[in-house]
Write a protein that binds this DNA or RNA. Sequence first.
DNA 1: GTGTTATTTCGTTAATTGGCGAAATAACGA
DNA 2: TCGTTATTTCGCCAATTAACGAAATAACAC
Lengths: 94, 94
Amino acid sequence: MNEVFQALSDPTRREILRLLRQRDMSAGEIAECFPLANSTLSGHFKILKHSGLIVSERSGTTIVYSLKVSAFEGMLAAVMELFEVDKEPKESKK
Amino acid sequence: MNEVFQALSDPTRREILRLLRQRDMSAGEIAECFPLANSTLSGHFKILKHSGLIVSERSGTTIVYSLKVSAFEGMLAAVMELFEVDKEPKESKK
DNA sequence: GTGTTATTTCGTTAATTGGCGAAATAACGA
DNA sequence: TCGTTATTTCGCCAATTAACGAAATAACAC
């Protein structure tokens, strides 16, 4: 889970996720959306993959990335656990 | 929102939030739960405060920290927006 | 095989981060 | 006022991070 929070801490990586939310995209397509070197984006893909938030599949000479929604569910659960969502009220206000 | 993701990216800070989920605590009480210098924890408090996830109130000579749940709601919404939660299905699987 | 395109890996660098101890600040009680 | 306690701020340092360009890899077409 640490890897997921880590992956989400960078704005560029969150934007990559936002792009993939709309449709699967190749590394090159994603790279065109940023003013960054391909190698830089590749590094971000690696981190996102390692966190489990995206998966890749080679299609000929291109590599297509896509969101892995199941990883998100775990993430959501962790965030909710972090706060008191789904717990009894705390009764501390005033 | 960037500050929130940034704040959540560190394990120590997430643990601080987890502690505060149970009850409000002073800086010293929180610090006792970690093998870190007080000054280090104070830095974490500062980041968490800046992100809006916690608030502080001085009580005599101690400073009491508490969770700010409303900030979490924004965070949750951002995470859900990041993924396709609450959107129509994507129709891409197989 | 050679060449082309798409992508990643490698090595470097500058900026950020998390840690520390020491000094500063704040509030209290004597 | 002078201590004492609680906490933060201030350098400082080591480790991590995000960026780059150049070189390496992979798949294809010829």
